[in-house]
């Protein structure tokens, strides 16, 4: 990766962190409703992954989607506006935290039924195969989604039809409060791909450079061979499953141990140790991200509520 790109990835990771920290405050203040799931701790996963895609590659993910939206190039303003349910959000305030999408940026959501978006991802690839292009669909999901039928139907059809899908399991060790070993017959999720004769790999999700490299390699395989690939990315969420999580299922020491591997801290250290940049530059990048979030909150707060007529628009296209 070139220096500029590395610094940009650093910026993206900090932007996600700051935006979500602010989002959590706005949630506590009652300005954001519904469910909200924070990506804090997992930033390196989607940042490294999305950086490796071509702009024509489609991205679809689950409900922990704010980071993915930002990585896909959706502005902090729009993400914050959608969180606040404002007319200036990407989905005019009708989707909310769990349904972030901007198809012009090839970000196809934000889907909140666990595993439900996997067959839809296969469908994107069916559509692209039918159109005769070599676009790839990057489908992200948690470890919890690999225990539901959708996962298996989607993986199977992607293999038998030679669909260009990069299946990305973000293994953050818990499906809500149930640890992987309590929910999944195998704890190494990549092994599930073996059952479908599907090429697979595994990478440390706390290191953005490693994620980027693994994703590049996987995407190249998918593009070239017209075959799916399952990439397991091991990571950890520092916050609860959602905003209302008493966290009875894990010990504070465990969280603390993972926090010592903060993906932003790791990347910061790498950039300095490899003398790619200086602490001053990284401080400036952090300040810029902070400023972007301040502006986004201002923008979102000042934005109008959706018009009442929006209630009845877009139910049908015809």
């Amino acid at each position: 990766m070139k220096k500029e790109q590395q610094l940009d990835l650093y910026y993206q990771m900090v932007l996600i962190r700051r935006l979500e920290e602010r989002g959590a405050e706005l949630y506590q203040a009652g300005k954001i409703g519904g469910f909200m799931h924070l990506y804090i701790g997992q930033e390196a996963v989607s940042t490294g992954l999305i950086a490796a895609r071509e702009p024509r590659d489609r991205v679809i993910t689950a409900y922990r989607d704010h980071g993915v939206a930002l990585n896909c190039g959706i502005s902090a303003n729009e993400v914050m506006a959608e969180l606040l349910g404002k007319a200036t959000g990407m989905s005019k305030g009708k989707g909310g935290s769990m349904h972030m999408a901007d198809t012009s940026k090839n970000m196809w959501g934000g889907h909140a039924i666990v595993g439900g978006h996997l067959p839809i991802a296969s469908g994107f690839a069916i559509g692209d195969q039918y159109a005769g292009n070599d676009n790839i669909t990057i489908c992200m999901f948690g470890d919890g989604a690999t225990n539901i039928g959708y996962f298996h139907e989607a993986l199977n059809i992607s293999k038998i039809w030679g669909l260009r899908v990069l299946w990305v399991c973000e293994n953050n060790q818990y499906g809500m409060g149930t640890s992987v070993d309590r929910a999944s017959a195998v704890t190494e999720i990549r092994q599930k791909a073996e059952g479908y004769g599907m090429k697979n790999g595994q990478v440390d999700g706390m290191d953005v450079t490693k994620v980027y490299e693994a994703a590049k390699e996987a995407l190249e395989f998918v593009r070239k061979n017209a075959q799916p690939y399952l990439l397991e990315i091991d990571t950890y969420r520092f916050r609860g499953h959602s905003m209302g999580d008493p966290e009875r299922y894990r010990k504070a020491e465990e969280v603390k141990k993972w926090q010592e591997n903060d993906p932003i801290g790791i990347f910061n250290k790498q950039l300095l140790e490899k003398k790619i940049t200086t602490a001053k530059v990284l401080d400036e990048i952090e300040a810029r991200a902070e400023q972007e979030v301040v502006k986004a909150v201002e923008f979102a707060e000042a934005s109008p509520e959706p018009a009442m007529s929006e209630l009845f628009t877009d139910i049908y296209a015809d």
Binding site: P119, I120, A121, G123, F124, E153, N156
Partner: peptide, 13 residues
């Protein structure tokens, strides 16, 4: 699920 989910995805694109 693969049939109807797949058809939805193909329609979306």
């Amino acid at each position: 699920n693969a049939i109807i989910g797949g058809a939805i995805g193909a329609a979306m694109v």
